[in-house]
Structure formats: C-alpha cells, structure tokens
Design a protein around this nucleic acid. Structure first.
Lengths: 339, 339
DNA sequence: GGGGAAATTTAAATCGATTTGATTCTTCCG
DNA sequence: CGGAAGAATCAAATCGATTTAAATTTCCCC
C-alpha cells in the first residue's frame, strides 16, 4: 500500500544494504539463508514490485522478445503464436506482439520501439517487401533475429517453416490423381515466400503430369475468406465449367471458395473439388470437410521460440530441423473421400 | 554502427552538455534553433537509439499500455484489438498484448509483468473468475484500468461494450416473429458477463412471447466453431425436430452449428433457422449468409483506448458513451430473407 | 586464544536520460 | 558604457537495481 517500495526501502527497514537485498531476492548463494528468508518475507509483506526498467538499465538484458506477424486474425499465424507463446512461457520470457498487417512501416516502427526498450531478440514473420538488408540492419544492432513461416531471399537468419513447395506439390498431385485436368489456383501472390513456394509446387505438379497451365485460372488476391468467396464468384460466375478443381493458397480462401461455389449453386466436393492449405482447426469441421495440407505452423512457432531462447542463453548450436515435413490431409472437399 | 551511442556520446562529440542534447531532441523551446539542428543531425548520423528504460526510470512514465483479451483467435476480440490498435497508434502508444485464454493465472502473471515494466495503464477484457477485488488491486497500485466487452460485477472501472441483453432480445424476437416457438440456445455460459447478459435477453424475449423455455435446449459450451458443430450434432442427432431455431451466443458457434446441421442432412436457413451474434466479417459471406447482431466491438475497442489515452493525459472526463447500441442484421440463415 | 580461511555483508560505481537551479552569454536601452 | 532582462547552456542530482572489490564477521583448528 505504501507508495513506492524499492530495494532500499526494504534494506532500511531491515538494517541491511541494498546489495544484500538485491542478492537475496535473486537467490544468490552469497547471502546467508536466515537473511534471505527475512528479506523475502519483508519484500512480500511490503508489496515490493521488482522494477525491471532499473534492472534492465543496469544489466542491459530486458527479458523482452519481440514477435511480429502479418495477421493475428488468420488462424495460421494465430497457431504460430500459440506455439511461440507456449515455448516462451516455459522460460518466463515476456513478449511484445506486433500485428504488422504486411505494412512495412508498421514493422519498422515496431522494431524501432523494440530497440528502444532494449529487447533481447526478435521472432518475425516478415512483412511483404522486407529485404535481406532490413534483416541485416536489425542484426547489426545486436538483436538476434529468428524468422518463422516466411523467409527472405538472401538473409542468413534462421527460418522455421513448413516445406511449402513440397506440400503444394502433394495436394495438387492428389487432385490430378483423382482425374482433374483443369485446375485453378487462388491466392498465390508472389510477394511472399509462401506464395511463391506454393505456386511453384503447384506448377511443378502440373508440369510433371503434362498439363498445360492456363494463367487465366490463377487469381492472386488477399488471403481471407472473403477473397476466396469473391475470386470464385468471379471465375465461376461467368464460366461455371472453367475448372473442375481449385487449389487454394490456404484454408481460409478455401472455406470462402466453398461458400462462393454454393452461392452459385455448385456443390464443393461434388461439382468442384476444393483444397486448402495449413490444416487449421476449422478444416475438420467445415461442411464438406476440407482437404488440406498439414503445415506444422504451431510446431514452427515452437521451434523458432526455442531457437531464440537457445541463442539468448548463449548456445551457438540452435538445432537444424528448420524445414517441417508437410502432410496431406485428404477429406471430403477434394472429392477423394466423399461420404 | 559504433557500439553504443548515448546522449553523452553526442554531447561530447559536439562539445555541449547532455542536458542540452536531451532538451534539443525533445524539441524543448529552451535550446537555440541552430543548436537543436546540429544536435538532431548528429543524432541521426550516429545512429542514436533512444533508451526508453533509462528515460522511463527517471520520469516514471513508460508509454506502455497493457491490453488483455481472452482469445485473439476469436474474431470478436481480434476486432476489438483492431479498434484499440488504431486508436493507440494515433497517440503513439505502444501496447503489450496478452492472450489470457480465460486463465486467471495467466492474467495475473501478465499484470504483474506490466507493473514491473511500469506500464501506464491497462485495457482489459477480464478472464472468467476475475473479481471486483482483483480489479481494485490493480487500480490500487496506481494503474488506471479500463474494461472492454466484459464487465465485472461490483467494479467501478469504466467499461465499453455492446448492450448484450438488448441485442439478444432483438434477435430472439426476430425469430419469434418469424413463427418459431421451439428455440435452442447455444454457448451461453454463465461465467462471463456477456454469457449472462445475452442469455437474459434471450429469456426475456421468450417470456414476453409467452413461450416456456426448455432447459434441455440450452447447451453451455465453449465458443468456438467446433463447439457449435458438436452441440448441434448432440441436440439434433437424436431428435432432429427438437427445435426449429438456434440462437447462438456468437457467430463462430453459429457457423459451426450450420456446418453441424448440414452434416446431419439439415439445411440451415430452411430446415432450421440459425442466428449468430457479433456480426463478424465472416457472417456476410457464409453460405447461407448469417443473421447476426452488430455489436460494435471495434468501436468498443476504440472508445476504450480513447478513454485510456484521455485518462493518461490527465482528463478526468472520459466520455460517457459506454454502452453501444446493437443492431439486428437479418440475413438468410434465419430464414427471414432467403434467396 | 590466535590466525587464517571461509562466509557474509557492504560501499560505491554504474547503466542513460531527465530536470532544476545556477551560470554564462546576448541584447538592448538609457 | 553599465547593467538589467532574457536567452541559452550547463553541472549535478536523480530514478532503482546490479555488481565488484573491499570490509567485516564467523568459524575452525592447532
């Protein structure tokens, strides 16, 4: 209750020095057990609040880790966050979250703020337009950087992510094996590494099957349910038979796409096959259930966080499992397993 | 690039005192224009990074606002965050986000951390189980508290939220006017103020219409898509005609519920009416489109943030529009407007 | 009981920005 | 030219915890 309890308040009340109090509270073996007990008791009783800014000013360690993601509303990134949260919680690190919305100036501002607060490290899924030089600039200030989900051409910072190209290849191949020859691809914007990689996987599968690709069937858009809905209405609104299958960049688009198909009187999984990517929780309970690719985003978040913790504790070896093996999850929407 | 640039680095290089540098960088009218220009130029050139912990140690103002929400994956809270973010961005405040997952110990830990960092204020949507005494305890440390979306019985901290009772009444009434007499209610857990309020609104509408309520038709569960899906399968799996309409606590449940109905061969909006709550972006593009209640969550976030900013800048009058008027958004899923 | 090793405790410097009261420098007018 | 008012700058204290070298106490054994 009393207005400001500091180390010296406690020290004075007990007739010891602040040095002793500081050491005692941090369980230093230097102080006698009896003294430690007295001090801890006094601290608790007086409602002492540890002042991190003072401590961190002195030690230049803040216990803060910055986490930047493009879109927390997107379950893909929300699941990454879950993984990060879980792992950082274990080592009692606090994190500052930034939702940069792929706006590079938001990202930049936040990084600046992190520096001002003396953050210990950054875990980032970089915004569209981030360059290797940008990443380098952060590292040059002494802030270790770990990337997650997205990577940046030319940067040597560690990245934890699913193998997007391989996963996209797998799901496309799945559709081709079911007999589809006219495949649309939605949401593969080239500006992000994931967009590029998944697109490449898609094209690789087509090429391998000798299918020529029709660029008109590729709509690069936002990656929201709404975008999926609208893209499908645009594509199929005019020509309902333009394609028999839709490969979506992610599950959100796929869910929107299915809704879009229905609004046109087409039944997803029967009239048109639809696949997603990421295998978010919703994929299992959509109607029809959604064929997707498990991408291990939660695991990627975990690994990235663990790597950061290792780096901060001085390890140089931060584990080399950085590319997560994707898994196809065939469900009703691709028509592969209707019923 | 040089390793640590501080105020005195700059001061030395220019042959002035740190006092002058500090004042100049903060645009104090005390320093001469020419001097200010020289100093700013030197700061920029040397890559000076403002050290907030040092500043905040001295001033005891940190520029940090803590924001706590139950679940960032839930679009309802994500939209609140959007509002908060937008508003705080305007006044260049940083915020620490905590996703407490309705775990009261997570909430407690985070509040402790905020105190240690010397946060200036807290905007919170309290976890289940939070008491007025808990809120009081925070306020007693000198941290101003503003609540959003949820309120706590007995607490006098300002709350910005939609009028849940009224909204639930409106949507239930809408169904009754369409002729429904057997209404189920999903997700109205009593532990949160929103759950309670919406449930009361629902019951009020029934009572007013002279409909007796069947407790078996009320399933209180999680508030996820998955829970909606499963609840419906439980209710309608055994007795497909147990109800003709489902009032869901929120849109997520409603979307899951529609999916659940479909999986049982029932068509939402035709065989069974479904309504949601919150009017999240997805409501408009689900198939069928979802009847919901606009709850103004983004606006609530904005207002809460604005109130916090006012409080911090010393205003005592923080505006009294704290209860947002809900609006019914009738769409296809309630069968009120099929086609 | 003396001496030295081991165990405790402490004084004081430090981290970097802010702020106040004092000092120095300008201006300008009588 | 003297000096008062105003402008610009500065020295030094301060915020609160950490840390190191030094001081003090305790302990043990001969």
């Amino acid at each position: 209750m009393s207005n400001k309890v500091t180390l010296s308040t406690i020290a004075d009340s007990l007739g010891v020095s602040t040095a002793t109090v500081s050491l005692a509270l941090r369980d230093s073996p230097l102080v006698a057990d009896a003294t430690r007990a007295r001090i801890k008791e006094a601290a608790a009783r007086s409602g002492y609040i540890y002042n991190r800014r003072a401590a961190s000013l002195r030690t230049s360690r803040s216990g803060i880790i910055g986490v930047l993601v493009p879109d927390i509303m997107n379950p893909f990134f929300a699941e990454i966050l879950l993984g990060i949260e879980e792992e950082l919680g274990l080592s009692r690190q606090t994190f500052f979250l930034c939702n940069h919305r792929d706006d590079i100036s938001v990202q930049k501002n936040f990084l600046e703020t992190l520096l001002q607060f003396g953050a210990d490290g950054v875990i980032v899924s970089p915004a569209i337009g981030t360059t290797a030089a940008d990443i380098k600039a952060i590292e040059d200030t002494g802030l270790p950087v770990v990337m997650v989900a997205r990577w940046v051409q030319g940067s040597r910072a560690p990245v934890y992510r699913g193998d997007d190209k391989k996963g996209a290849y797998m799901v496309t191949r799945h559709l081709i094996e079911l007999g589809h020859r006219k495949l649309a691809f939605i949401g593969g914007r080239r500006e992000t590494s994931t967009g590029n990689d998944r697109r490449e996987g898609f094209l690789a599968a087509l090429e391998q099957a000798g299918i020529e690709y029709d660029p008109a069937l590729q709509i690069g858009t936002e990656r929201t349910r709404k975008a999926g809905y609208e893209s499908v209405r645009k594509l199929f609104g005019e020509k309902p038979d333009c394609a028999t299958a839709i490969v979506c960049f992610n599950d959100l688009l796929a869910i929107g796409a299915m809704s879009g198909l229905r609004s046109l009187g087409l039944e997803p999984g029967r009239d048109v096959a639809v696949t997603g990517y990421d295998d978010i929780a919703e994929a299992e309970i959509s109607a029809p259930t959604l064929t997707s690719v498990w991408n291990g985003q939660q695991r990627a978040g975990q690994l990235a966080a663990r790597a950061m913790v290792s780096i901060l504790s001085g390890d140089r070896d931060i584990g080399e499992v950085r590319l997560i093996e994707p898994e196809l999850r065939a469900r009703q929407s691709s028509g592969g397993k209707i019923g």
